[in-house]
Design a protein around this nucleic acid. Structure first.
Lengths: 347, 347
DNA sequence: CCGTTTCACTTAACCGATTAACTTACGCGC
DNA sequence: GCGCGTAAGTTAATCGGTTAAGTGAAACGG
C-alpha cells in the first residue's frame, strides 16, 4: 500500500511492531525471543508482505542457501541430464541450484567458479573440464566443493563422486572380447587438459590383457563433430574401400559417451552399415534416448539418479558442517546389454 | 600475504594508495579521476589481488551483470538444448547466465523467479510452465523479462520469442495429408495450466480444413511416460488387435515435441511396427538426436540457435535500456523432412 | 535479602561496496 | 583582482540485513 514497487524492509516491520530491527531479525529466525513476540512479528511480517532480501542477508551473514552447479560443457547430453537431476535433487532439499555452463573452456570454468564463490553459494558441485587446474584449490578453501566424474587433484574437496572407469572399461572390453571382437576403436572425449588420461591407460591395459587390438582416438562430444570422426573411423571399413596404409577396420567401436555413439550411428547409416550386425557399438552413459535407437544402444549405466543424489548429499552435509563416512563415492558400472553389440559378422 | 583466506577489500586498496574508498571506487570504474590516479589505483588493486565483491556491489548498486534463465522443466530434452544455447549466447556477451529449473511446477516457477529477482539479476529469460500466472506481473515490473515459447499474458515483458505454432501445425498436417493420411493422433505435452490450449484449437481447425480426423491426446514429455501413452495409442493398431469400442487406429502420430516422438518410436518397436512404413511419426523440435534415429525423425526445425540469439539480444537490450524495433519475435517453422513419415501402407 | 543467572530485548558495529553532496584548488575570462 | 566553472577528491549516508555486546528486570538459589 505505502510505497509502490518498493519492498518492505526489516526496519518497517520493526517500526510496525515497535521493536528493534535486531529483535525482528531474531524473531523471524526463531532465536531467543518470547513466543508471543515471535508470533506478533510473524503476523506483522506477513501483513506487510515482508521477505528478507537475500543480497543483504548474504552480505551480512555470508550465507545464501544457494548451491552452485557448474557444468563443464552443457552441450553434452549427458551433462544436461546430470544437471537436471542434480537441480531436482537440491530443490527437493529446499536449496536453489544455480546451474552455470563453462562451455568446455577451462579458464571460463575457473572464472565461473570464482564468480559463484563470490556470490556466496553455500556449496559448489562441479563436473570439471580441467580437474587438475591450480585454481580449484583456492576455491575449495572458500566453499565446500563436490566434484563429479573426476577428482580435483590439487584441492581439498568436500567430496567426490567418481566412476569406476577401470571396471567400466573392463566390463565393456570383456564383453566385446567375449562376442569375438579383436579389433576395437575406442573414442574418448577430447579434453583440453588431458595429457595422459588415466582412461586411455586403462583401455590399453585391458586391451593388452584381453588380446584386443585397440585404437584410441579422441572425439568431440558434439554430434556433427563426432559423426565426422566416426566417418573417418569407418572409412576404412568392412566393404574393402580402405585407403592404403590405413589401419585395419574395427569390428566394434567403444564410445566413451553416448553422444559419441550417436555420431557413430549416424556415420554408420551413411556408410550403409547396420549397427549390431556389420558394426558393434557400445556407449558409456545410458542416456534415455539410447533405448530408442535402432538397435537400442548397448551401454554402461552408472545410475544417474544415485550420482545426483550422492553428490547433493555430500554437498549438503558439507554445508551443514556434518562429517560424512565416505567422502569418495565410487560408482559401479552396470552393462546395459541391448542390441547394438553382437558377434562380428564378416571381417 | 597479510590475512590468509580473506579477500582484499576496497578499503585496503584505499589505504594502500592513500586515497578514499570513494576515489578508488570511481577510479576502478573510470569515472572522473585523473589518469595518473587511475593508473596508480589499478596497479595497487592488481598488486593486492583486489576484486570487487559482487554481493556488496549488488546491494549498493542494485546491479549484478548476471542474467537469470528459468527453465520450466529441465527434464525436457528440448529445454536442455535451449538452456545450453542461451547460456552460451549470454556468456559470449560477458554476462553470467544462472540457469534454474522449475521442474514443471508452476508455483515453484514463480518462487524461483522471485528468488532471481531478489538476487538482482539484471534480466530474466523464461521458458514458462504457466505463462498465464498472475505472479509474472510483479516480477516483470521489477526486472526485464523475456519469455520464450509462450507470451506472459498478464505481464509487461521486455520481449517475447514465440513460435508460429499455427504455421507449424499447418505445415505438418498439410504434409501428412499430402502423403495420404486421414487419421492422425496428435500428442500435446501435458501442462498443469492449460485449460484450452491454443495449440489444440489450431490442430482442430487445421484438421477440419484438411478433412483429417485428428485425435488430440495430452502426453508427458518424459520418455517412459510418453512411451506408455504411445503404447495405448498403438494398442488399437494396424494389425487388428484393437479393443472393442476403441478409436480407429491412426496411420500417423504428430508429436508436439521430439521427446514424445521418441516415446512413440519405443512403443512402435515394442509393437513390431516399423516407423516410416507401418506408422508415420512427426516431431516438433528438431533435437540433434532426431537425426540419428532409424528412420531419422521428420520434424519441425524452429532454429534453436536463432531463438537463443534473439532471446539474449532482447534481454540485453532491455537491460541496457535500449529500445528495440520489435519486442515480439515470431519464429517460422521449417519442416525437416526425413524418413519417419511416408504414405500410409495398409490401413 | 543479596548476588547471580536467565530471559528478552536494544544498541550499535559491521558486511563491502556505491553515490549524492560537499570541499578545494586551479585556470580562465574580463 | 574577482567571480566562476570545472576537475579531482573527500565525507558520509545508504543498501538491508546480521550479530556481538550490553542492559534492565524478573527469577532463583542459599
Amino acid at each position: 500500500m505505502a510505497r509502490p514497487n518498493k519492498r518492505t524492509t526489516l526496519r518497517e516491520v520493526a517500526e510496525a511492531t515497535g521493536l528493534s530491527t535486531a529483535a525482528v531479525s531474531y524473531a523471524l529466525r526463531g532465536k531467543h525471543v518470547s513466543k508471543e513476540t515471535e508470533e506478533r512479528v510473524r503476523r506483522a511480517a506477513a501483513e506487510l508482505g515482508y521477505e528478507a532480501d537475500p543480497i543483504a542477508r548474504a552480505l551480512a551473514s555470508g550465507r545464501t542457501s544457494t548451491v552452485g552447479v557448474l557444468a563443464g560443457d552443457l552441450q553434452d547430453l549427458w551433462q544436461q541430464q546430470l544437471m537436471a537431476a542434480i537441480g531436482r535433487e537440491l530443490l527437493a532439499g529446499d536449496r536453489y541450484a544455480l546451474i552455470l555452463d563453462a562451455g568446455g573452456d577451462p579458464e571460463r570454468e575457473l572464472a565461473l567458479a570464482k564468480q559463484l564463490r563470490d556470490q556466496r553459494v553455500d556449496g559448489l558441485l562441479v563436473s570439471p573440464v580441467d580437474p587438475s587446474a591450480e585454481g580449484w584449490s583456492k576455491i575449495a578453501d572458500a566453499v565446500p566443493v563436490v566434484s563429479i566424474g573426476d577428482a580435483l587433484s590439487r584441492a581439498r574437496t568436500a567430496g567426490e563422486v567418481l566412476f569406476d572407469n577401470r571396471a567400466g572399461i573392463d566390463a565393456v572390453l570383456d564383453y566385446l572380447r567375449g562376442l569375438g571382437h579383436r579389433r576395437v576403436t575406442v573414442l574418448t572425449p577430447t579434453g583440453p587438459s588431458t595429457p595422459d588420461r588415466p582412461a586411455d591407460v586403462y583401455v590399453r591395459e585391458a586391451a593388452d590383457r584381453l588380446g584386443i587390438e585397440a585404437e584410441v582416438l579422441p572425439c568431440p562430444q558434439e554430434l556433427d563433430a563426432a559423426t565426422a570422426v566416426a566417418r573417418r573411423v569407418l572409412a576404412n571399413s568392412p566393404d574393402g574401400r580402405r585407403p592404403a596404409g590405413a589401419l585395419a577396420p574395427p569390428t566394434a567401436v567403444f564410445c566413451f559417451s553416448d553422444s559419441i555413439a550417436y555420431g557413430v550411428y549416424a556415420a554408420a547409416a551413411e556408410a550403409s552399415l547396420t549397427v549390431g550386425r556389420d558394426l558393434s557399438v557400445v556407449g558409456f552413459d545410458d542416456h534415455p534416448v539410447s533405448r530408442v535407437l535402432t538397435p537400442p544402444l548397448t551401454t554402461v549405466d552408472w545410475g544417474l539418479a544415485e550420482i545426483a543424489k550422492e553428490a547433493a548429499r555430500l554437498a549438503v552435509a558439507a554445508i551443514e558442517g556434518r562429517r560424512v563416512r565416505r567422502k569418495r563415492i565410487l560408482c559401479a558400472p552396470r552393462l546395459s546389454e541391448r542390441g547394438s553389440a553382437a558377434e562380428p559378422g564378416r571381417g
